[in-house]
């Protein structure tokens, strides 16, 4: 049963397992360094649908379908689905899961939603409220662009701090099992706002939240970065990643080269025109479900802190001159149920 430790962290004593997972992406993702790890790649970013929003829902269907079929599960075996995306009223998730008949909890945590949904799914399983819970998020470059920025055909120039929204989705089924990857702990993040207003510099807006959540977790569990193989942030990109390391240094926390960022892993920033890196709910979700979870399952990665970050602004708040509040949730994923060397 989950126990709270410190002020922000829950230790999951029954260590629920990520039973199966699926990742889907499109052309740009397939051309990135992680392209070959995706379960499904459709080079046509419309996924055969008549609008970008429908394409995003289709990706949700595909990633959930992959996660279910790889674990040999039927939709009616899933007790609850936690899902979210970037579109207004979370229509990517709602229409994607509409036909599956799974009890549905819609979440909005911006790009942090994968960690948020995975944390809730793990908590539901750990406390035995659910036997199997689903966590799924998505984002689509085109649907995000037309909602948050400009029409796709508009000739604007992206500043170098801008990030590229990942067209992708990732889904995890969490349940009880003796097989890795296990979810050992989760930390629910607090909203952090240091007053950054530039919507083209989200990495910088989210970095303080990531720094806060990581230091909360380390303090709550009395561990150090050295105890983990990888500290994986969601989509801070190049600008936010540099800022995170600086912020943690000020708190005397040295990540010692253990820090990786999904937004920097998914694309080749030299070859692909993505400026400061990838972003979006689908960024953290698809990197986690394609590249990271298999490595934890095989044991090549032992302990990973998955810290997805989100910027909780909207076009309305931006136009009203509000600054960008950031959030970061943390999930401790592990190849073992107990920490190496302890007990």
């Amino acid at each position: 049963m989950a126990v709270k430790t410190g002020n922000h962290t829950y230790l999951l004593e029954n260590t629920p397992s990520v039973l199966s997972f699926g990742a889907v992406g499109s052309k740009k993702e397939s051309e990135g360094p992680l392209g070959r790890y995706f379960d499904v790649i459709n080079p046509d970013s419309s996924f055969g649908e008549s609008s970008w929003e429908k394409a995003e829902s289709k990706m949700v269907q595909i990633s959930v379908g992959q996660a279910l079929s790889k674990g040999n599960f039927e939709a009616d075996q899933i007790d609850v689905a936690f899902a979210g995306d970037l579109l207004n009223q979370c229509i990517g998730s709602a229409y994607g899961l509409r036909d599956l008949g799974i009890p549905f909890v819609g979440l909005y945590g911006a790009c942090s939603t994968m960690a948020e949904s995975l944390a809730l799914a793990a908590l539901f399983v750990d406390t035995a409220i659910a036997k199997k819970a689903l966590a799924v998020t998505s984002s689509h470059f085109c649907s995000a662009e037309r909602q948050f920025r400009f029409p796709l055909e508009y000739g604007g120039q992206r500043p170098p701090t801008a990030q590229w929204t990942v067209t992708g989705s990732g889904a995890c089924v969490v349940g009880e099992s003796d097989a890795a990857p296990f979810v050992r702990a989760v930390t629910i993040g607090c909203i952090e706002d240091l007053g950054i207003k530039d919507a083209n510099n989200m990495g910088a807006a989210m970095a303080p939240a990531a720094a806060k959540t990581i230091s909360h977790y380390l303090a709550d569990t009395r561990t150090r970065p050295e105890d983990y193989d990888m500290i994986l942030t969601g989509d801070l990109g190049q600008v936010g990643s540099a800022l995170l390391e600086q912020l943690l240094e000020q708190e005397k926390v040295d990540l010692k080269g253990r820090h990786q960022d999904c937004g920097l892993l998914i694309y080749d920033r030299k070859q692909q025109d993505v400026h400061a890196g990838g972003s979006g709910c689908g960024c953290a979700a698809s990197v986690l479900c394609s590249f990271i979870l298999p490595k934890i399952r095989q044991g090549t990665l032992g302990d990973v802190l998955f810290v997805a970050t989100g910027a909780l602004m909207s076009p309305t708040s931006s136009m009203q001159g509000e600054s960008i509040p950031g959030i970061a949730h943390l999930v401790h994923l592990s190849s073992g149920r107990r920490r190496k060397g302890v007990e």
Partner: peptide, 10 residues
């Protein structure tokens, strides 16, 4: 700090 971390536009 966020200013400094931003890459220079050419």
């Amino acid at each position: 700090m966020s200013q400094k971390a931003a890459p220079n536009s050419k």
